[in-house]
Amino acid sequence: MPHRAFFAFILPSLVAMILFIALPIASVAVQSLFVQHEKVVVETETCAPFGGCKKETRVDSDATAKLRHDEPLGKFNGFGTYLDRNHLAVGEIKAILASSTGIGNVVTQIYNLPFYKALSFTLTYTFIVTPFAMLLGFCIALGVNTLPPLAKGPVIFFSLLPMIVTPLVGALIVYWMVSTQGIVGATLQNLFNDPTLSLKSSSVLTWLTLLAYGIWHNAPFSFVVFYAGLQTVPDDTLESAMIDGASRWERIRFVIVPHLMPLATFVALVQLMDNFRVFEPIVGFSADANATSLSWSIYNDLHSQVDQLFGSAAATSMLTITGVIILLSPVLVRTWREFNRR
């Protein structure tokens, strides 16, 4: 296809992506270097007839509003926002390390910094939910594959629901069930005979609930892909493995798993990308006291009622984008090598 025709065809899509994906990333990069103007403070001297003179400082709200209106970006701050307490917290970490009293203490203190708190949950969620959801999906696929054909349709229908449902809505449905007055939460209270037991009461329980929700939400995708893959496993290979004396487990381990490996890399890639942006479950479970994620911190900065902290949100966004690129880099490097070999 000649260049002209190619660009004529791809132009609308390319323009949309440049305007609304590439430029915003640039805009985020610029915004992250600025902070909002501080409030304009004026010092006035009021002299009472007898009390002498007093100096007062007050916020000039008109001037503040005008300044913020004229320069919406705020003032230049360089990398200040990246290094402050709410992001990389370099100063705080140095102080923590200097006054360190044992590794556990250091970890707890660093965990209490907002950015590291969000980062640790995001990474835990990404790297626990992805493999477990894939494993569960694989087991379901093996199970469904042996069902009689008539039962397969309805089973696949119900299996798709947790994945297809709106993430926020799915999170709410589960949250209502596990809340203290919901069916699961109340039953657990009875079971452990502890009327104060609540999944929201401790970080560990909140994390476990969110992880379990993540696995429930992500398993169907792996299931569908692996199930389709199982249909293409050659029967001959399986039977010859049987004749060679391979046990059921060995057949799964040495025939089926290698056959599904390319699919598994694809599923892992997609799930890592999606789980890294975990956001809706935290809103749905209102879990932000015990678990926050990078996406949630950006949302929180932008959503605050008083001041929208564009600079802070932008800095977190840039750090998140860096994370995404690190996560993707093995894939990008591999694709690049394969492309060059061709």
């Binding site: 915003p24 990333i25 890294f276 956001f279 990078l294 900065d301 966004s317 993707l328």
Partner: peptide
């Protein structure tokens, strides 16, 4: 792979 919320923070201003 970009989280949508990072793009949103670029749109708002």
């Amino acid at each position: 792979a970009m989280p949508h919320i990072t793009l949103v923070s670029g749109y708002l201003l």
